[in-house]
């Protein structure tokens, strides 16, 4: 039985190091965004919260946005989420 990471590697055609060093974001119900693997907060506004991610910027746009939790490599943003976009800077 293959390990999950090995399975992902074959499926996505990505190297393991890329998978390990990458970032991930999950949107729940249009009101919560969980970001993993960020490299710090870039902007914090009620309408936009941006995080540095590997090779780019992850923007969460909406209204009444607040940071529910921010840790070393993970963060949770809550509010009325309109758009989550990653721009390669």
């Amino acid at each position: 039985m293959k390990a999950f990471n090995q399975y992902l590697q074959d499926l996505c055609g990505l190297e393991l190091t890329t998978l390990a060093k990458g970032y991930k974001y999950t949107v729940f119900g249009g009101s919560t965004v969980v970001i993993e693997g960020h490299k710090g907060l870039c902007a914090f506004l009620p309408t936009q919260i941006s995080f540095f991610v590997g090779g780019g910027l992850l923007k969460v746009e909406g209204s009444n946005l607040t940071i529910k939790c921010v840790q070393r490599q993970s963060a949770v943003v809550v509010g009325k989420i309109d758009n989550v976009a990653v721009s390669n800077g």
Binding site: G40, L41, F44, T66, I67, K68, C69, V70, Q71, A75
Partner: peptide, 16 residues
């Protein structure tokens, strides 16, 4: 906030 996160201090309920 980045400095706090980098020092492993979890920050919750940030309101600005």
């Amino acid at each position: 906030l980045n400095t706090l996160a980098a020092q492993n201090i979890a920050v919750f309920g940030v309101k600005r």
